[in-house]
Amino acid sequence: SLLESPNSSLTEIEHLTQNVLKSYRETCQLRLEDLQLLRWETFTKEEVGSYQKKSMEEMWERCACHITEAIQYVVEFAKRMSGFMDLCQNDQIVLLKAGAMEVVLVRMCRAFNSENRTVFFEGKYASPELFKSLGCNELINSIFDFAHSLSSLHFSENEIALFTALVLINSNRPWLQEKSKVERLQNNLELAFKHMLRKNHREGILAKLPPKGKLRNLCYQHMEKLRSFRQMYPIIVHAVFPPLYKELFS
């Protein structure tokens, strides 16, 4: 009904909110409490050095596997969201193909310690230097800058849940077949998000949210870097990269 009725009641919006919060809680991959507990567990200099000495191929493969795992949780989040599975299969794929990585990047701010500019990676918090062997310092720094700016908003878990739902349900994605259905779900999610912010006196963050182009640009940079890596190591990508990662990004 959320996709068909002309107007949504406050009760419907409240149901949608509760559904999105529950779907998010069930699929958030890492618990915030655990991330907070490990907040100051950083890699030692020796450990950072050993990551930096890894080959570019090994580091790329590791990161591709972690991104793929994170994306699988986002797919599950989408599937549990009211209305998503009522969209046609083409549009489900379009939205996930365009938005899954963007959601992963937003979710990353939970695993980011802005006080020492580190991110949770393979059991501890890592600085950008740890990723040196990937050969994409500019992209890594842009992702860290993005996580830093998002952290300054001090998102609550509920805010992340609704914000990421809105990152995913975007009726402006190209190749949608039933744009109006996506628009309707997006409008309801926007109402739900704004209603929650108003209730918590947090409307101020609306003006500080990252522009949609920012996330799109980070994802574009990631795909460009993958393209360069693939030119250098086509066999590695073909043989050892996760199939879902290749399907989405190359």
């Binding site: 599937k79 083409n90 489900q92 794929i93 199939p243 879902l244 989405l248």
Partner: peptide, 17 residues
């Protein structure tokens, strides 16, 4: 699109997850 995204399509169809 479904043809080009078989894994994503399968994940979406999988009701056991």
């Amino acid at each position: 699109l479904k043809e080009k995204h078989k894994i994503l399509h399968r994940l979406l169809q999988d009701s056991s997850s």
